[in-house]
Design a protein around this nucleic acid. Structure first.
Lengths: 201, 201
DNA sequence: TCCTTTGCATTGCATATGCAATGTAAAGAT
DNA sequence: ATCTTTACATTGCATATGCAATGCAAAGGA
């Protein structure tokens, strides 16, 4: 046989090319041949590593979200050991907002996959699982940030996550400048975490 | 000639079918023939009313957002004359969250178009225009709701809109129950509009 | 040394796609 | 009555798609 090859690595490379194609021309432009061309290989090679286009899509989606998660973790790690919970929350949420071209690319792909998932229950289930994880993590941090029990951590986490994701969408499709998105996010986080309990009751 | 026909109406019918196909199988499944079949007409007829697929997509998107806007206006109108600004805001934002199957269909399509727009500047420009309108409207209502100038209406409007849209996305692709989405939205609106000024400064 | 396995390339096929071209029948104009 | 316009339908074509089938050379084991 020819030089032994790391299957997983090759699959990653292919998935990479898929993501680049998707970032540029959307998921509809993703075809075996386009992906192969982007990767500088033949369509046959792509077929060798993925039994079907669907499998390739799944793998690429997993790769993308894995990569995103890593970015988020890195940002949180940058805060040093024992960071303040609201700094952690801030770092996590900011990761959603695309602030340069490469982040826009990633976010475009993420958005495309959200839409992709919305008509495919299997895919949606995977996304849901990841989201649940992030949501729980955020809720835990919120609990730490506000030791008073004046807020429901789950609801708050949902709201904050939705805000961050919604801002991302609006940066991409509604031409919202990312600075404005960051302002809005900052505002929302502050409002959520620094509001004194029982304001009017 | 055969019975004179309302062009606009026919185009609407075709667009309708397009939206139904998109709601069920995503935008990638939208083709002249699929749309035609869904509409119960021939592909030639579709071609007769739209010079190209792209034109059809544009028209369908406009139809969808027009329909959505109508729904939102109706909800606001239901509040009676001179409604409280925060009721107006609430009504507008709630319209984003899909709460039944037909609303889920609409929202799926909306999400698909967001993604579609994110790789097509022309389309994005149209979306941006509509969004700007809604954003301004919301900002105005926020100004009414909070006569104190402790919040920046534009930023607040952006944050609230993003939250609503993000919640919609999460209901569709992350299996968030719509009740939870409504809770989070309510929470966020209350927090935004009913927080006393200068809490800690 | 042979022979099998592995990694990839090529070819081909059935099907789908957007769209141009052309046909045709009905309704109105002259 | 004829002629033209309108509203579709049909056909066909170039191209793209997913995928199966097959080829084939290099690396290792026997």
């Amino acid at each position: 046989m020819p030089k032994r090859v790391d299957h997983h690595e090759r699959r990653q490379q292919v998935a990479d090319s898929l993501l680049r194609v998707a970032a540029r021309q959307g998921l509809e432009a993703v075809s075996l041949r386009h992906v192969a061309e982007e990767a500088g290989v033949t369509a046959g090679m792509v077929q060798h590593y993925f039994p079907s286009k669907e499998a390739m899509m799944h793998f690429a989606m997993a790769t993308a979200s894995e990569r995103y998660e890593r970015r988020m973790r890195a940002r949180i790690a940058e805060l040093g050991s024992e960071p303040a919970p609201n700094e952690v929350i801030r770092a996590a949420l900011i990761s959603f907002v695309p602030c340069d071209e490469s982040e826009r690319d990633e976010a475009r792909v993420a958005l495309a996959f959200q839409s992709y998932a919305s008509t495919r229950p299997t895919v949606a289930a995977e996304l849901a699982a990841q989201n649940a994880q992030l949501s729980e993590f955020l809720a835990a941090q919120i609990l730490l940030a506000r030791r008073d029990d004046t807020v429901d951590p789950a609801t708050t986490a949902t709201a904050l996550l939705a805000t961050a994701e919604g801002l991302a969408v609006r940066v991409l499709s509604a031409k919202l400048p990312h600075e404005a998105a960051l302002d809005a996010l900052t505002y929302q986080i502050t409002l959520t975490l620094d509001t004194p309990p029982d304001p009017d009751a």
